[in-house]
């Protein structure tokens, strides 16, 4: 039987960028158009099959925006990776990438960071171009991908990449 390993990972990003929706897509493969603000944290579990072990990802979906600073350390501590998300239709959500990356690294220096620009399906409303996204993400030490929780575009890829980069 394969080894089972549990690891805590976080979703970080401003409110309404689609963190909850990305988790829902990845774990339950569904999407909801309605917006229900998260407060506190919701933890979901999803096993990811790796070559010689099963990685149980415990995904911490945290309240976005300025609530994060209050919730702070106890939520983020002990997590080995973070998916940091912005909303491609709202420029200001990209400005927070550095903030979340630094918070994560301050508490977990070796954490794996992956950056996602969500709502890629809203092409005509997109205001952030890929060049800026890649550049900022690389400068903060992580890879970047476009995602859409709505269509499922690259959601699996993002989490798979995260899982692959986690050393066990």
């Amino acid at each position: 039987m394969k080894r089972v390993i549990q690891k805590k990972v976080c979703l970080l990003g401003d409110f309404a960028v689609g963190k909850t929706s990305l988790v829902r897509r990845f774990v339950e493969d569904r999407f909801d158009d309605r917006y229900l603000s998260t407060i506190g944290v919701k933890i979901s579990r999803k096993p990811v099959e790796m070559a010689d072990y099963t990685l149980n990802l415990l995904i911490w979906d945290l309240a976005g925006g300025d609530d994060f600073s209050q919730a702070g350390a106890s939520y983020v501590r002990g997590s080995v990776a973070a998916l940091i998300v912005c909303d491609l239709t709202r420029r200001e959500t990209l400005d927070s990438f550095a903030y979340y990356a630094n918070q994560m690294r301050a508490l977990n220096p070796d954490a794996v960071l992956i950056f996602a620009g969500n709502k890629a399906d809203l092409e005509s409303e997109r205001v952030i171009d890929n060049e800026a996204l890649h550049e900022i993400s690389l400068s903060l030490g992580g890879h970047y991908l476009d995602t859409s929780a709505k269509t499922g575009y690259q959601v699996e890829t993002a989490f798979q990449l995260l899982a692959k980069k986690i050393t066990v």
Binding site: Q6, K7, K8, I43, R45, L58, S74, R77, G78, S79, V80
Partner: peptide
Amino acid sequence: VTEILWEFVGAEAA
């Protein structure tokens, strides 16, 4: 406890 409460996975050090 980490098997019963996922919340504590990652919190072992604490």
